[in-house]
Design a protein around this nucleic acid. Sequence first.
DNA 1: TCGTACCAATGAAACGATTCAAAACTTCGG
DNA 2: CCGAAGTTTTGAATCGTTTCATTGGTACGA
Lengths: 340, 340
Amino acid sequence: MNRTASIKDVANHASVAVGTVSNVLNYPDRVSQRTKERVLRAIDELGFVRNDAARQLRAGHSRTIGLIVLDVGNPFFTSVVRAAEDAAALQGSAVLLGDSGHDAGREANYIDLFQEQRVQGLLISPVGDVTERLDLLRERGVPTVLVDRLADESKFSSVAVDDDAGGYLAARHLLDTGRRRLAFVGGPTSIRQVADRLQGAERAVKEEPDATLEVLDSAGQTVLAGRSVGDMLVERGRAELPDGIFCANDLLALGVMQSLTMTHTFRIPEDVALIGYDDIDFAVSAVVPLSSIRQPTELLGRTAIELLSEEVESRNPVHRAVVFTPELVVRQSTATPGEG
Amino acid sequence: MNRTASIKDVANHASVAVGTVSNVLNYPDRVSQRTKERVLRAIDELGFVRNDAARQLRAGHSRTIGLIVLDVGNPFFTSVVRAAEDAAALQGSAVLLGDSGHDAGREANYIDLFQEQRVQGLLISPVGDVTERLDLLRERGVPTVLVDRLADESKFSSVAVDDDAGGYLAARHLLDTGRRRLAFVGGPTSIRQVADRLQGAERAVKEEPDATLEVLDSAGQTVLAGRSVGDMLVERGRAELPDGIFCANDLLALGVMQSLTMTHTFRIPEDVALIGYDDIDFAVSAVVPLSSIRQPTELLGRTAIELLSEEVESRNPVHRAVVFTPELVVRQSTATPGEG
DNA sequence: TCGTACCAATGAAACGATTCAAAACTTCGG
DNA sequence: CCGAAGTTTTGAATCGTTTCATTGGTACGA
């Protein structure tokens, strides 16, 4: 048991030619029943396992797709990854997963690694601006699809979710349930997602002449940041409290909820309605189940793979930018006051 | 720009032999300065990227390590993965990540895939019992290290965390802060982790003659399951309430906390102390910051890689089972009543 | 019996990098 | 100018698979 068996060993053991063994593996119909059985027995007895490196060397390309995400721990990406893996498996490819952790250096390492592996193509949620490294990929003809990032269609295909539409959806929902004094809670607007969600909310508020939107800047996108905003609101007193709060993500919303419910001065949703964004697992099991905006992550992952396949198959590069619309998930935290 | 450049193209372009190009890449010292520069320029001009398949075919093995986890979304594994990747990178290997999602079929697919890729070795957190497939790997001489699972040392190396010690640590902490009527909240004890944590807690309680431990079975390991247990406790009334609760994981603890704090009948930690397990991100930002037991995930990942390296390098397979002791993280939810 | 199809099996060539024995070139002392 | 010793460069052989033109067999009708 020194070395793993090769196709040649199998051929000898079954007394056939190497080409025949290869045919058994790749084109079973071309081989007679008798021979096939002999070969399969030999494979079994020797514990033969295909050497993918040799296969891929001959084929000129691998059957793997590279996927680089900003943070595997983030449920959004976890879900996208899972969907991409499943979609890839259906078409016989495997996904190599890389986690850049928002670090351009790690991202670069993975890009290089995947190039050496001769991946069929690359799905990437890039760190910061689209780097020159991605342009290099393009020149080298490595099909690439940007994930969760709009792209110049002359250069790349991309899949993304319309954050402006999500913001509109959230604010519109608050307005539809009778709230008029809205507040937006969100981290630095330098983050594109935050800015887009705010912009969508503003658009909805402009549709109602008597509605107002107050912007409450939060220090970050965490539960604790949400709690400080909440504490600040509690101190204001009832008269100046907004009656509908839209948070740029669920963590912020959970923090705000903690503040408001702890003091027992305000009730959700009777005094204030609260809606978040992302629909993380915790949203449904919050003290007051949290309404949220759900992003179609499975669709995102699946579509990314499909766009990539298109690029791989067609010679001439026709890029497409696909944008999905998020979905409103209504729970108790924004129930209509009348209905409790 | 039809085909990616090969080492032969580079050699022609720089007017040297293929061996020289290879030397520039692998043993730069063997090559004269002048030649090296010419070759590097050619590499740059042609956009040459090493073909890993060819390299690996010649070398007989890859520079990658397979890692199969039960759930990439679980923060415990996410952290282990990150640590393993970093440790592998240090020794010049890359990690191929597979997510079995607790599904034996997906696990089997990844094992097969990684075998075809000729990974140097495999880290796996196996689904259910150690399968015959792993025994096959062993026979084929693929070094394998089990993660988060104790293994028969005659067969595999393994890294795991001592759940019994963790349970002891949690209960001992409750006892040390003066609590005597303890309760354990945990899902079906058929789950090994749950059973071990309970056993450790029982061990601690036996050390105090006047202490008792009540076992409250929960329907699962979720926030909602925790909340039903909490609701049940609230109904009991103060006299029969335990004064220290140890939950088999943080989600359960957060659920219990929601119930107890919502009614405002009981205060944490004054009336009841509460401690969880895993120290997830949410623990620190709970309404009452949650004490918990932290598992040394980074250490787990790093050590797994080290054990694997040992197996890869040494001829004769000497397996080791490494068990780590978890760590107590004290927060407000178990503060000593006196200190409030 | 021969010729024509058809089907199965064969095995050399190719993929691209690394290795290593041999060849080619330098340098330097005599 | 020669030979020895050292340094660089060369290029054929190799890894394991797939491909495909070629060969070997079999069946069947004429």
